[in-house]
C-alpha cells in the first residue's frame, strides 16, 4: 500500500463509517458478554445460594441451571447478531469502499 492510498482510504467517508460503526458494535457486544459472564462469576463467588433457588415451587431444578444454559445460548446469539450485521452492513460498506478506490 502506498502513502497516497493510505491517505485516500483513511479520509474516505465510507472507511470512517465502517470503522467507527463496526468498532462501536464489536466493543458493545464484547462488553455485554463480559458483563454477563462476570456477573455470573461474582454471584457464584459471593452469593451462590441465589442460584440454588428452585425453579418453581416443589421443583428439584434450581434456577442456576436454566441461567447457565441461557448464558451458553446467549454467547451463540451474540455471535449470530454480529455475523448478521457484518455480512450485510459492513460487507456492503467494504464493497462500496473498494469500488470507490478502484476508480
Amino acid at each position: 500500500m502506498t502513502e497516497i492510498t493510505i491517505e485516500i482510504i483513511k479520509n474516505h467517508p465510507k472507511y470512517q463509517e465502517l470503522v467507527s460503526s463496526r468498532s462501536r458494535y464489536a466493543w458493545t457486544l464484547s462488553v455485554l458478554m463480559l458483563l454477563v459472564y462476570y456477573t455470573f462469576i461474582m454471584i457464584i463467588a459471593f452469593k451462590p445460594e441465589l442460584l440454588a433457588i428452585p425453579l418453581y415451587n416443589g421443583s428439584v431444578i434450581s434456577v442456576g441451571i436454566p441461567i447457565g444454559i441461557t448464558i451458553i445460548l446467549f454467547s451463540f446469539l451474540l455471535t449470530g447478531l454480529y455475523v448478521r450485521r457484518a455480512n450485510s452492513k459492513y460487507d456492503l460498506l467494504l464493497e462500496e469502499l473498494n469500488a470507490d478506490i478502484k476508480k
Binding site: M33, L34, I65, I71, I72, S75
Partner: peptide
C-alpha cells in the same frame, strides 16, 4: 453436578470476544 456447567461456560465465553475483536 452444577460446577461442571460453570467450567463449560468459562471455556465458551472467550469465543464471542475472539469473533468481535
Amino acid at each position: 453436578g452444577y460446577d461442571g456447567l460453570i467450567y463449560s461456560i468459562g471455556f465458551l465465553v472467550g469465543w464471542p470476544i475472539i469473533l468481535f475483536l
